[in-house]
Design a protein around this nucleic acid. Structure first.
Lengths: 201, 201
DNA sequence: TGTACATCAGTGAACGCGCGTTCACTGATGTAC
DNA sequence: TGTACATCAGTGAACGCGCGTTCACTGATGTAC
């Protein structure tokens, strides 16, 4: 802990910018997102970010990359908490983790899945988002006893499960699933688990 | 057809602005969307739109409203084309219409479901989006023989179906369902119908 | 039928704003000797 | 251990741009008489 940093050199501006970017995203929406805004949030001159990110796209790609990592973590955390080896229960846990992330970081979720501003050609981002997809594929592999990459029916299961949880999360975030919004957390989770289970009979 | 309009008065600027707004949205994305840009597209001074829309939000709300109407039309058109009374086939047709719309008007779809810039408090917009939701609810009512507004299980069916088709459409549009994108149209539709049927057993 | 007047629809100049980008700079840090 | 120098990280002024908003205007249309 070298708290006593010089005032001039920030120390870890890159991380600070990423953190502030998330705050700005959450507070003002992606429409108002700008490099200058993020620099102001950190309390640094507006040209400082250039040393860490080429432009707004670069920052957003890095933020989305971090988002996918945390997204994957959210699914894994639920699975750990479930403390089970049951393939079905593990798949459900992933779905609940998916929702945890969407509800916990709605701005990031929107960025990762709904924004035209992020460049998915970025290799880091591609890797992170693929890893998240692979996690769901593994859940299905465990359930079906065959890898989705080898078996079209299992791949169909992956896409069905993904579509369901993603649609549920997206509509919930968009405020278009009013009956669900009225539920408390345990009820909502049970409700989702019921719907989610239908999809992989 | 009074083609010989005066050069000064446009004739139907409101409609022209809505049309141009869709073009701008499709061409440059919602990030670059501005009232000035739309006015330029129409070939009119940048202050002209003020006579028809209070601001960008107003234009976007009107555009999203039109979007929901066309969205509903797309579902109904598929049902008409199916030429059947079978409740299950009609539900599937709605799902395919949902996809038709998303694929045919991706920018509008994104605006309607993914943008923070549209104000869902607008009463016209609320009415149009509710009508689209009600359409799906009616499909389920036909299938279950009971209105989802009276029966929680039927309402669960509505939300399951909606989540599935929306997630599928959204992921497809975001380019994240690569195996599906590789399919030709009939194959893709059969694939979707198969997934969609799982959700309302 | 003609005229006067009100209203409506669109114009274009002006404003202030935040943005991204550039650039010469300066302060801090690391390294060679 | 000290000094000189290169490199890195952040500054702040300047630029041109497109934006939304305002405002006095003008051209076209509709209506009253």
């Amino acid at each position: 802990m070298t708290e006593e940093k010089s005032a001039y050199h920030h120390g870890d501006l890159r991380a600070a910018l990423l953190g502030a970017a998330e705050t700005v995203l959450a507070d003002t929406g992606i429409e108002a997102f700008s490099l200058r805004r993020v620099a102001r949030e950190v309390g640094v001159s507006h040209s400082a970010p250039a040393h860490h990110f080429a432009d707004t796209q670069g920052l957003l790609a890095a933020l989305a990359t971090e988002g996918f990592t945390r997204f994957l973590n959210a699914m894994q955390a639920r699975q750990r908490a479930a403390a089970t080896q049951d393939a079905r229960a593990l798949l459900t846990a992933s779905g609940l983790g998916y929702l945890d992330f969407a509800q916990g970081s709605p701005a990031l979720f929107q960025l990762m899945f709904g924004s035209e501003r992020v460049d998915f050609c970025d290799p880091m981002l591609d890797r992170a988002s693929t890893a998240a997809f692979d996690h769901l594929a593994q859940d299905i592999a465990r359930l079906r006893g065959v890898s989705p990459y080898d078996d079209p029916a299992a791949m169909a299961d992956v896409m069905a499960a993904w579509s369901m949880v993603h649609g549920f999360a997206a509509l919930l975030m968009a405020g278009r699933l009013k009956p669900v919004q009225a539920m408390d957390t345990p009820e909502r989770e049970a409700f989702f688990a019921m719907l989610f289970a239908r999809v992989t009979p």
